[in-house]
């Protein structure tokens, strides 16, 4: 009965990570949940980044390592007092090793409703060239 469409969502706590490098600013760092899939032409990454503004998101591709990092500013005003806290607000960080060669100039990123969609087109494979043999 319970097909994928009507499945009830389960509450999950965000997974915290420790970065190898020491932080200059304290605070928890979380790994965002992601979907990654590829077609013959491109690699697509979807990441859940609630609370991240476009200007606070950093996407870096260097030596085939794709790094996502984002700062989150607390939406609470300073005079609010906590009553119940079930989730924590913090930075997001995640790295991926890409095996494919990505065309850096054509990367597209879109952040909408807290979800990042990153399109990473593969470098066009050298199209086989046909060589005509001339006959004199």
């Amino acid at each position: 009965m319970a097909d994928a469409e009507t499945k009830a969502l389960k509450a999950r706590e965000k997974t915290e990570v420790t970065r190898p490098a020491e932080q200059t600013r304290p605070g928890p760092i979380f790994t965002p949940a992601v979907d990654i899939f590829e077609t013959d032409r491109e690699l697509t990454l979807l990441a859940d980044l609630p609370g991240v503004k476009a200007e606070d998101l950093k996407i870096d591709l260097h030596d085939n390592i794709l790094t996502l990092s984002a700062d989150v500013q607390s939406p609470e005003s300073p005079n609010e007092v906590g009553v119940l806290r079930e989730y924590r607000t913090g930075k997001y960080f995640r790295e991926f090793n890409l095996s494919e060669i990505i065309d850096q100039n054509k990367i597209e990123a879109e952040l909408k409703d807290g979800v990042l969609q990153l399109r990473l087109p593969k470098v066009e494979a050298a199209t086989p060239r046909k060589i005509k043999v001339k006959t004199s």
Binding site: K10, D35, E38
Partner: peptide, 12 residues
Amino acid sequence: VRYHRREREAGQ
């Protein structure tokens, strides 16, 4: 499409 990661969930 071929999936590498599928961690995000949908539902009610």
